[in-house]
């Protein structure tokens, strides 16, 4: 009674392959993103502080979403603490996989990063973690320049 067929292709024939949307974009990472990914090549992490209320944002951004005023960048350690985690066992197309994904509160900020956990036998909420970066020549200026976070 619980398992139902939700894929209509299993019930009757449709045009082979169905429809396709082939669309591609360049996603601009912006001033804050550029600054972050450039500094990451030097092994440094940056966050942004609101000039008005002092809230410390990670991911960094150029404006404070509460005051609608400007921010300034500052350096942080990149280390943090696991706030929540999940062990994902299904990929985008619902095929098997396994990855630990965590919401990590970053030290010295009021913000978080959402990333993978690696080199960990066990994971728990409150666990201290630090980033593992790709080699500089493998970096592409994207979030995957951080390979994962591992226990401190």
């Amino acid at each position: 009674m619980i398992d139902k067929i939700v894929d209509p292709e299993k019930l009757r024939h449709f045009p082979p392959g169905g429809g396709k949307i082939e669309l591609y974009w360049l996603y601009t990472s912006g001033k804050a993103g550029n600054e972050f990914f450039r500094k990451l090549r030097e092994g440094k992490f940056i966050a942004a502080r609101c000039k008005k209320c002092g809230r410390r944002y990670f991911p960094p951004r150029i404006f404070c979403e509460f005051d609608f005023s400007e921010t300034e960048f500052f350096e942080i350690s990149g280390e943090g603490c696991v706030e929540a985690f999940t062990i994902a066992k299904l990929d985008l197309n619902e095929n098997p996989m396994e990855e630990i994904i965590a919401l990590i509160k970053l030290e010295g900020t009021d913000g978080r990063i959402l990333h993978l956990i690696g080199e960990a036998k066990d994971v728990c909420i409150g666990m201290k973690v630090k980033p593992v970066l790709k080699k500089v020549d493998e970096m592409t200026g994207t979030i995957s320049d951080i390979k994962y976070f591992k226990p401190v």
Partner: peptide, 9 residues
């Protein structure tokens, strides 16, 4: 920028 590329889960 910050989320999509993290995982294929």
């Amino acid at each position: 920028i910050w989320l999509k590329g993290v995982t294929r889960a």
